[in-house]
Design a protein around this nucleic acid. Structure first.
Lengths: 126, 126
DNA sequence: CTACGACCTCATGTTGACTTGATGTCAAGG
DNA sequence: CCTTGACATCAAGTCAACATGAGGTCGTAG
């Protein structure tokens, strides 16, 4: 066994990120280097889970700064933040639904070019 | 009546964008200046609808370049593009749902700090 | 001994979607 | 006639989230 600490390359591999991205996360304090072995970073294994969370949160539109706040806030303020974000995500999903049906609508019309089609504005046929 | 063409300021007001943003859209060919009156841009009124579409599409994660393609492609390729985007949007919505339930889950746990909570990784309680 | 691969730092480049600043033009109102 | 406000151009700045490149350090394999 290689000790349970992970190198930056191992972290990168396990989460599907580049080494430089992981280094960046470290630099901005999103993750923490547990210790160094002759200058090289060694991470706690649970960093993998943390970074995976980061990636999922990013996909949902959170900035790295927001994610940092949510993950590490110890004052309890994160609950409020998460609540606000949830509202935002619900709105986002609603808009996404609108967009989806609108696109589906546009796609199923007979128009040659979308710019000339009114389905992207009104619900009536072209 | 002021003639039906709109100034850049009027466009900006109606879509809730800055004048410089509209100018930018013009510069990259996303919208078109119909004509100029002593150097000043005059737009077709339907530009408003077009820009509104642009904003909505942006909210759903399209880049301006993609939006341009979708709006103006005359070769019919846009249908395919829109189809691909629809698939993408569905995936996005699914991930959003996952994220929403995960966040809701995390929020409703008793943890002091999210980083120490495992709900963002597994479905079991903290 | 040397080469290699993985790591290091620090500085700078990249992309998208704008914004900001400097400087100039133009028509209308007082 | 002069000022004002809306417009114009062009260059450069901004922000996030990295990527890239130069130059140096390690430990190990051959």
């Amino acid at each position: 066994m290689t000790d349970q600490l992970l190198s930056i390359g191992q972290i990168a591999d396990r989460v599907g990120l580049s080494v430089s991205a992981v280094r960046y996360y470290d630099a901005i304090g999103l993750i923490q280097t547990r210790t160094r072995v002759s200058g090289k970073r060694r991470f706690d294994p649970d960093t993998v889970g943390r970074v995976n969370f980061v990636r999922r949160a990013q996909e949902s539109g959170f900035s790295l700064e927001e994610i940092s706040l949510i993950l590490d806030d110890t004052a309890g303020g994160w609950r409020e933040l998460v609540g606000a974000k949830l509202t935002e995500l619900h709105e986002r999903r609603d808009r996404l639904d609108v967009m989806i049906s609108m696109l589906a609508d546009v796609q199923s019309c007979g128009c040659q070019v979308v710019a000339g089609c009114d389905r992207y504005e009104r619900p009536d046929p072209c």
